[in-house]
Amino acid sequence: MTTFTSCVYVTHLVAPKYGSTEAECEDAITVLPGRPYDYMLQEPITAGVCDGATESALSKDWAGLLSGAAAEDAMQRPHVLAGGTAFEEFAASAVAQWEPWLARYTQDREADGRPLKWYEHTKLEEGAYATLLMVRIDPDTDSPTGTSEPAWRWSAAALGDSCLFHLRDNRLVQTFPVASVEEFGTNPDLFSSRNHDAALLARRTRFTEGRCRPGDRLLLMTDALAAWLMSAGDQEDAVSQLLEYASPDDLDDFKQWLNGLRERRQLRNDDVALVRIDFEGR
C-alpha cells in the first residue's frame, strides 16, 4: 500500500489602506502555532481574522485582542466551532478581556501625560467593534472509504463579512459566510467589546465545516479583498493574481498590487488582511 504524508503551509499578509500607515491598520490576524511561512505543519492550526470598525474607538486594538482570543480558544477547545454553549463561553471570555485591557491603556495614557479627553470617554462607552472569522484545521484520520489519500478537515465561525474561500484546482468551491458580492454592505454584523449577551453573539454567528485534500487552498480575508475576488469578471485570473503572493517577503509587492487595483477602482480603499493556507501531500 502506498503511504501518503501531508502537510500545511501558512502565510499571512496585512496591508493598510492607501494613505495610512501600518500602525493605523485596523485589520488583525492571529495564526497558531506561530511558525515561519515555510515551516511544514502537520498539527492543528487555528486562525482569527478581524476587521476593526473605523467608526468605533480603539477598533484596531479590539481587532487584535479578538483575533488572538479566537485563535487561542479554537486551539484549546476544538468544539467551540460547533457553536452553542462552547461559543457562548468563548464570546463571554473575549469580552471579559476588554475592560482590563482598557484600564491598562487608560493608565498608560495618564503616565505619558496624555489622559483621555472627555469626548474619548464618551466614545469608549459605546465600545469597540470588529468582524470575526475563526478557523481551525485538523488532520483527518477518517479518510474517505477506499482511499488512503491524506485529508484535512476544517471548521469555521463568522460574524460579519470577513470571508473564507476554499480553492480546488485554483477554482472556488466554497465561500463562507458571504455567498455573493451583493451581500457585502456597509453594516455587517459586528462583535462588540461591550456586548455581554453571549447568547445573542452566538445566534448571530454562522458556522460551517469542510474537508481539504492535497493541492487545495484556503484563503481567509477581510471584506474589501473578498468583495474584489467575488466580483471579478474572470475569477480564475483573479485567483491567479492573488496566489502570486506566497510569503511575507512579498508584502511590498502585495501592497503595490493592491494600490494598482485601487487606482483602477477595482478595490475599495480599505485595510486588507489575508491568510493563505496551502495543503500539500505526497
Results as ranks from 00 to 15, higher is better:
residue 4 F to P: 11
residue 8 V to H: 10
residue 13 L to H: 01
residue 26 E to S: 08
residue 30 T to G: 00
residue 40 M to Y: 12
residue 44 P to N: 04
residue 46 T to Q: 06
residue 49 V to M: 02
residue 52 G to Q: 12
residue 58 L to I: 00
residue 75 M to W: 15
residue 81 L to K: 09
residue 81 L to G: 10
residue 82 A to D: 10
residue 86 A to I: 08
residue 87 F to W: 04
residue 92 A to R: 03
residue 109 R to D: 02
residue 109 R to V: 03
residue 117 K to D: 05
residue 120 E to V: 12
residue 122 T to K: 11
residue 123 K to T: 06
residue 123 K to G: 09
residue 125 E to R: 14
residue 126 E to P: 00
residue 126 E to N: 02
residue 148 S to P: 15
residue 150 P to S: 11
residue 151 A to Q: 15
residue 152 W to R: 07
residue 155 S to R: 14
residue 166 H to A: 04
residue 167 L to R: 08
residue 169 D to L: 13
residue 171 R to C: 11
residue 178 V to K: 10
residue 188 P to F: 09
residue 189 D to I: 04
residue 190 L to H: 13
residue 192 S to N: 14
residue 194 R to K: 12
residue 199 A to R: 11
residue 204 R to G: 15
residue 207 F to G: 02
residue 208 T to N: 01
residue 212 C to W: 03
residue 213 R to K: 10
residue 221 M to H: 12
residue 229 L to T: 11
residue 231 S to N: 11
residue 232 A to V: 06
residue 235 Q to W: 07
residue 242 L to T: 03
residue 243 L to Q: 09
residue 247 S to T: 13
residue 250 D to I: 06
residue 251 L to F: 01
residue 255 K to I: 14
residue 255 K to Y: 10
residue 262 R to A: 08
residue 270 D to P: 10
residue 277 I to S: 11
residue 281 G to L: 02
residue 281 G to C: 01
residue 282 R to W: 13
